[in-house]
Simulated assay, not measured.
Amino acid sequence: MPFFAFHDAEHFYGEPEPVPGARVSFVPDKLFAARERRPVRQPLGDEGLMVNEIAADVRQWPSSLWRVADLEPMRPLYGHRWVPCRAFTVMEQVPAWLIAGPHGDAVEWVIARTRTLTGAQADALAALSDEGEEPLIRTLWSRWSRGHHTLSPVGCALTTLHEVVAEAARRVGPHLFGPDEEVDVEVLSDPAWLRAFGAAYAAALALGAPELLSPTENAVLARRWTTVFGSPDLPGR
């Protein structure tokens, strides 16, 4: 059953908002008005309510995720995995972390702690040795790339981590950022915070895709993160 990712009311171009049993319809005027106010990620020609047939194909971490049915598609896109719809019926709300796979709750735990990362925590992560992480990450990606075509072993979570660590650093201070001359923007440049991001990245892969490495290897990959934050206390784990 396909999925609809709801991000926020400002970026929702339908009505009514999703609730179980609702028949949600695309409202073109909402999209056109949003385009007049600001750039909109949805490209021209792709108007509609975007529905993903695979949860892991959702490109941005949503505030809520819904199973939907009775689609009224406009036309199929991207190999029928991403479909713009005129309308659909909402069946049920499911955990948003499903976009990161069956172990997405552990990935969500990493994201939540990254979102509130402090300077002291970043320094603690940076001070720990990352020995062994890089070759394990290469091995994990190599194994994943054989026969998989979704964003990553944990969906869009790695992109989300990059965004939230920058948000956390921005709260600490602008001194953690520097110019990127290629794209003419300020980017996170502080060495300690970059190493902290590396620890979060490694932990998200280890906890979110444990089947790609051995338990011992996963422990090494997540070691810096779990040393500072412990292991996730998740139901049924």
Results as ranks from 00 to 15, higher is better:
D8T: 01
A9Y: 04
H11C: 02
E15C: 01
P16R: 07
P16H: 02
P16D: 01
E17C: 03
V19A: 14
P20T: 10
R23N: 01
F26D: 00
F26S: 00
V27E: 07
P28Q: 06
P28C: 04
D29H: 04
D29G: 06
K30P: 00
L31E: 15
L31C: 03
L31T: 06
A33H: 09
E36Q: 13
R38T: 06
V40D: 00
Q42I: 11
L44M: 09
L44G: 08
D46F: 08
E47H: 06
V51Q: 05
V51F: 02
N52P: 00
E53M: 07
A55F: 12
A55I: 10
A55H: 12
A56L: 10
Q60E: 09
P62H: 07
S63C: 05
S63N: 07
S64Y: 00
W66R: 04
W66F: 01
W66H: 05
D70E: 10
E72P: 00
M74V: 10
L77I: 07
L77A: 03
G79M: 09
H80Q: 10
H80D: 12
R81C: 01
W82L: 11
V83C: 11
V83T: 10
P84I: 07
P84K: 05
C85Y: 06
M91T: 11
M91E: 11
Q93S: 08
A96N: 01
A100L: 05
G101K: 13
H103V: 05
G104C: 07
G104M: 03
W109H: 03
T114G: 08
T114D: 04
T114S: 05
T116L: 07
T118W: 11
G119C: 08
A120G: 14
A122V: 06
D123W: 09
L125G: 01
A127N: 13
L128R: 11
S129E: 07
G132E: 04
E133D: 15
E134D: 14
L136Y: 09
L136S: 06
L136E: 02
I137L: 13
T139A: 12
S142M: 11
S142F: 08
R143E: 04
W144M: 09
R146A: 10
T150R: 15
L151H: 13
L151P: 00
L151C: 01
S152Y: 07
V154G: 03
G155T: 09
L158C: 05
T159M: 04
L161H: 05
L161C: 06
L161N: 10
V164L: 08
V164G: 03
A169P: 02
R170Y: 09
V172R: 12
G173M: 14
G173I: 15
G173A: 12
P174L: 15
H175T: 10
F177G: 09
P179W: 15
V183C: 14
V183Q: 15
E186C: 13
P191Q: 08
P191H: 09
W193Q: 03
A196T: 11
A199M: 04
A202P: 02
A203G: 02
A203W: 13
A206E: 03
A206L: 06
G208E: 02
A209Q: 14
A209N: 12
P210F: 11
P210T: 05
L212N: 05
E217F: 03
N218V: 08
A219N: 13
A219Y: 00
L221Y: 09
T226Y: 04
T227E: 12
F229Q: 10
F229N: 07
P232D: 06
P232K: 13
P232V: 14
D233L: 15
L234K: 13
P235A: 14
P235C: 09
G236A: 15
